[in-house]
Design a protein around this nucleic acid. Sequence first.
DNA 1: ATGGTTGGCCTCCAA
Length: 256
Amino acid sequence: MQIVSWNINSLNARKDFAARFLDEVRPEVIGLQELKLETDKVPRELFTERGYEVAVLGQKSWNGVLIAAKQPLVDVETWLGPDPEGEARFIAATVGGLRLINVYCPQGQTEDSDKFAYKLRFYDGLIARIGAGDPSAPLVVLGDLNVAPDPEDIYDPVGLATTPSFHPLERERFRRLLDWGLVDVVKPHVPAGAFSFWDYRGGDFHKNKGMRIDHVLATKVVAARVEGAAILREWRKKKDGLAPSDHAPVLVRLRD
DNA sequence: ATGGTTGGCCTCCAA
């Protein structure tokens, strides 16, 4: 079974690109982030025509997450974050006995911004939700977690030492997820210095100035079933004139 | 060289 996480950066702008991806890679499960679409504006037929069930938490202009799977999706749960106004960054569902959490963590802007404080609060809420569960149960947490966990996961760990996505307070929160019982199941299968995100600006992709901030984490019982993982860098490139997202898809293969 | 890009949608914000 192939499971994919991908920050699509507008499903509306990326509809044809996403269709190509689904037809060529044919993952059994996919979690998308940054739909930038309201729930009822999501092109569900993109998935249903290809045999997927789909669960969506959308939002106008920003955020928005979705899980699609070729098996029934049950026990769908959404969370609008720690603040009363709410942002569409979390959706969970169970597929074939496997609990999936798909999350788009805030980016955080700058260290001294309200957005960074929100990012930390969001993480605390996420840790509390995950921590309320059983670490021996089969769980996958995937998504754009917006944290490069280790120095090899960012192109300039010294220059960006206190920048959001590599700030010590975020990396500490990321480690708390691992301490609870989640395993980074991608890291052992990709070379050090493999990235999943490159900014559109400054030709960063061509200079390979990127970060590994898109993740698939799994509890140990699931991690034991992982037979491979990859960051699909080719899908960060233009495809027959179709513009790419600024993130590459991340793929994990699980034994049945 | 103190820059560059993309998407949403109201002319600037977010990443």
